[in-house]
Nucleic acid binder design. Structure first.
Lengths: 169, 169
DNA sequence: GCTAGATTGACAGTACACTTACAATATGGC
DNA sequence: GCCATATTGTAAGTGTACTGTCAATCTAGC
């Protein structure tokens, strides 16, 4: 009867999806920050701007669901975007707890201006792969993120963004 | 002459590799922490333990290169592992700046005990995909992380771990 | 052997990413 | 209308992840 445990080597780290996802996220952020150095925006701040642009008058809780970003941390992100005057926060008339988010003129201008940089960053992340492999990886990742959505502490709820319309409309 | 910029929608986020890598990292950490709740270890702390196990008497700088983890932050990680008594730090005789890292007995025991939980976590991350797709994704990710190594702020230098042997050996 | 430059570990600062807790407010059941 | 419950924003606490800077120390060139 063999009871031997396999030896623990660095392969227990390097060949595992957990390590690869961490590295890839690390690399993706580095590339994004490099391409978008001029505009002083982080990947999450960019996602928030896009979401507020797409859903004006969204509140922080719904924004969190739409970009799948932790609700508590989002407060700080919003604060930073407000300090940089890219967004505005206005109290909602119907619900005194809620503060609605809007892109400012300069926020909208920024968003328009950085799209080329963002696109360049996104392209660079997959650049080293052959075009066909890029497509395959993107398809598998999309599928995996979608199927694992509930495993995340902050599942994506894209449809949440529409809720605030139903009340007044 | 058309100069129109494409409309900015949430697709500028959802369909991009940057977003997918962030989500997947988020999901991977959540799954890891869930499976390893009992032992109170983070993914990075686990990687550090494996590396110290594989390379006893490694120093912090080389450890950083071996697990591709930021040198400055690693100090805190080491501190936490030391507080939990999983590792020991001993000053090096030859170089007074260096502190060498060793697994304690309880650190080695922990590492042995949690391997099944870690394996379960790693398996769960890819679970939703078909077996063939898991292999494809893992292969493409491994390739991409390797080819993008230098784009990271903390490139992996696995061979650095062996340097400390060359001096005295 | 002495000094210029590199290395090492430590620290301060910024930004995610998550947890739990809490007060203010809103809502639905009665 | 009143109250249990849920929602919203905020804050404190922990842990990555990176940027810098700094002093102590080592090493190489001379």
């Amino acid at each position: 009867m063999r009871n031997k445990t396999p030896p623990v080597t660095m392969d227990a780290v390097y060949s595992k999806p957990g390590y690869l996802f961490r590295r890839m996220q690390q690399i993706a952020v580095a590339i994004f920050m490099e391409e978008c150095r001029a505009c002083d925006l982080t990947p999450v701040q960019f996602a928030a701007l896009v979401a507020i642009h797409t859903h004006p008058a969204i509140d922080a809780t719904r924004l969190s669901a739409v970009i799948a970003f932790d609700r508590s941390t989002l407060g700080n992100v919003i604060e930073r975007l407000e300090t940089k005057q890219y967004i505005e926060r206005k109290p909602a008339a119907e619900d005194k707890r809620v503060k609605l988010l809007y892109l400012t003129r300069s926020g909208a201008a920024l968003l328009r201006d950085i799209m080329p940089s963002v696109d360049r960053a996104q392209a660079r992340m997959l650049q080293p792969l052959k075009p066909a492999d890029r497509k395959t990886l993107l398809a598998l990742l999309t599928q995996l993120v979608d199927l694992n959505n509930e495993a995340s502490r902050v599942p994506l709820r894209a449809e949440d963004a529409l809720e605030h319309l139903g009340k007044s409309g």
